[in-house]
Design a protein around this nucleic acid. Sequence first.
RNA 1: GGCGCCUUGGCGGAGUAGCUACGCAGCGGUCUGCAAAACCGCGUACACGGGUGCAAAUCCCGUAGGUGCCUCCA
Length: 463
Amino acid sequence: MKLYNTLSRQVEEVKPLQAPKVTVYTCGPTVYDFPHIGNWFTFIRYDLLVRTLKLTGFEPQWVMNITDVGHLVSDADDGEDKLEKGAQREGKTAWDVAKVYSDYFTEGLKRLNFVPPTELPKATDHIAEQITLVQELETQGFTYVIDDGVYYDTSKFPKYADFARLDLDEQQAGARVEVNAQKRNPTDFALWKFSPTDHQRDMEWDSPWGKGFPGWHLECSAMSRKYLGDTIDVHSGGIDHVPVHHTNEIAQSEAITGKPLANLWMHTNHILINDEKIAKSAGNGITLEDIEARGYSLEAFRLHVLESHYRSQSKFSWESLEAAQNRLKNWQALADLRWQTREDGTENTDWSIPESYIKEKLGNDLNTPEAIITIDRHADIVTYIPKNVVDQFVQFLEFVDGAFGLTLSRGHDITDEQKQLIAERESARERKDWPESDRLRDLLKEQGIGVRDTDHGAIWYRL
RNA sequence: GGCGCCUUGGCGGAGUAGCUACGCAGCGGUCUGCAAAACCGCGUACACGGGUGCAAAUCCCGUAGGUGCCUCCA
């Protein structure tokens, strides 16, 4: 199993510390609003990672955090809290908002057929661990206190710029004006923010430094350590996290443990809609509900996600989703051949061949586009399944479902009545009673069943 | 200003050197009772200019355009 490692900027073999166990940490959602499809793109790709690790013989332990603490829009004093803002918008407390959207998210994982993560820890359940972490950093001299909080002094961590290959001096030259003049370095970030004095926050906790709330990078350092130990095998997140969030996580965790936070860092690229990034202000925040409202299945959406490579900046369009849905139908038609086996025939596909090919492609930095072709090819060529290989075929379908998170193997046969209609149509055709055979074909069509005639009889498929 | 990425046919999107994926859409044909499916052919696909190779979409240099991040962000 090979993956591109942001740390080395190269494709590397995954080498877990305690194989076959492999620890995976994913930076999860901030639950202040409905996730848009760009968010789901990312999470589906981590699901793919976990599935592929399983496929290649590993036993993944997958932890994805849920950020349910409201963090400031920026570290500047005038920043707004996303959760509190969401609460204001909906006339609720930040706690209510966090609950609603975190429930929505976990429900979404099920709707999209995710492998259930081993843990889905919430930041608000790990305040004590986060405070401990700040204390450890304080003991080791990495912190300082200013008016609005406890900060991390990035100049004390010499490797700070290494991970993202930042050029701190040049960056400062063109960066926007730093609002907080009390910070020692522009890259310094809050570990613990003090509550404002003029009003009460919905979410705040006592700490050795006063009432407040944790900085937003802190939870990942605290929770990954708690659940997966000092060094994670694969740490994943959106590409936008490289220069700030993950850089800061590394600074926090490695300052304390002296060990690598993760051996391999996987980052997914973002998608574009109409050549623009997804942003609430652009009004292109499409949700799962929008997809379903247009008549597309979430399974088609999942397949659409897998059609592009996770490191490329791919595009979303309704046309592409339509194409994915058609592709899925082709695959479903192939899967439905399991109900239409024949005793005789020379068709003799060895289903272990595409299986190992798909494994090989996925194992090579999750090359889903190439893996997908394999199934297309077979969906084109195979017209029936001999009875004696149906078990192997079903096993292949289960393999595909496991690899891509689909439900091809969970299909069901058509009803006896429908089979009867097909048989009647067959005999009508033998009698050359074309009006009757066309009537029966239309009847089946109304029931969502298409029929096509081959040299070895009629084959049905779902429309 | 800094750090990156990208540019493939009507659309989407693969492809790290040689035989030119795949899905969607179009045209012509074979086949078919009609369909469907499949297959064949077509619309001369690889931003531009150099370079290195017997050979480049694929490697190197440059140009143009686009785009992401540096601020919350998947």
